[in-house]
Design a protein around this nucleic acid. Sequence first.
DNA 1: TAGATTGTTAATCGATTAACAATC
DNA 2: TAGATTGTTAATCGATTAACAATC
Lengths: 216, 216
Amino acid sequence: MEAFNNNIEKLNRPTLERLLLYYHYINEHMNGEDTACISSSELAQIIGVDDTLVRKDFASIGLKGRPRSGFVMADIKSQIRVILGFDKSYHAIIVGAGRLGGAIACYDEFKDYGLKIVGLFDNDIQKIGSQIGEFTIQPLVELSPIIQQLQVILGILTVPAEAAQPLADQMIEAGVKGIWCFSPTHLVVPSHITLRQEHLSVGIAGLSYHLRNLIS
Amino acid sequence: MEAFNNNIEKLNRPTLERLLLYYHYINEHMNGEDTACISSSELAQIIGVDDTLVRKDFASIGLKGRPRSGFVMADIKSQIRVILGFDKSYHAIIVGAGRLGGAIACYDEFKDYGLKIVGLFDNDIQKIGSQIGEFTIQPLVELSPIIQQLQVILGILTVPAEAAQPLADQMIEAGVKGIWCFSPTHLVVPSHITLRQEHLSVGIAGLSYHLRNLIS
DNA sequence: TAGATTGTTAATCGATTAACAATC
DNA sequence: TAGATTGTTAATCGATTAACAATC
């Protein structure tokens, strides 16, 4: 297990992102045939990368193919699930019950990735107690107790930028191991905390940069 | 203009992303002093990159610094705005008036990036005519006419995965030049169309991968 | 067997970092 | 002037691609 972990710990970001693309494609095109195969070159063409890269990626997660037939799709799917941790379920909570927080709370696909939302919090007295999807919005005073009671390891932030840092600090103090932040700010967290910052504006930047010459 | 465009057209993705980080930081820390300077090493430390890289990035967008003082913050800000096209305003519409569509429609920061949402569409008869923020939800039959009338160049998709492709096709047919897709699917678009696919699951993959060893 | 496909080593490519002269 | 900081060339690093023997 030690060696195995050391091995996959090395996966770099481009590889991680490609693994997810493979996973999406296989997931949508498996049709229950457990023994169906796909060649690295076919998958490479679909994803838009070089076929050697696909084989390298698969080798890096311990997948073996067979000359003349390729890789068993069911194997690809299950191995990526294991490597990315989708086979293990873990608890997350959302702080910020605005439209974005609500959208994430109700996002159906999360269960495919092992992520289970177990709470939705807000400081707005108007919202507390009301319902979004299957969640009753809870007050912030419950935040730390719930994190501890339910062993929540991921905190999702969908609050205004200026509220994000203190809430992140509080969640880390209470025991979360990761922060997924949708607030447009720059969080500072201890090095042992996994942080993923989603900046909508990164998307805009790329689009705007490519579109700017078309704007009259 | 020709030469200038050829020049900046070369900006690669890491550079684009860093430009945005510089922009965010400068934007929040300028305090109206138009002449305040910042050194490449100071900015580098804040962003978490090498200082040579900051100077390379700035050189690549035509920014010049001064030995002993650094770069004028106001210059950095305005030059990045021009390069990324934030100084030009353009029209976008959103298709899919669910929670995520609503969140994006009401996202306040977009105006800083030149993006102006001019319509919110849905096919749900229950939703059509109702209000989200300042938008009245419109029926899909209005989609193409509005795109043409208002010269909409960006279409934002927040619909279920299976609805995304035909709607993208329709918007491209009607004249949009870019698609920003939040639906968890793989869109196929002509090569002259700028596509940005946002996959929430990419974020989950990275988080899950790093957290998986902590899950009991 | 012949031929398609894997697995892997070597070559290439592009981005980052190091080094350092030029400059204010 | 002395010293901090830029601007740029060369070195390094890491990821991708090419080449090709091994294999079913």
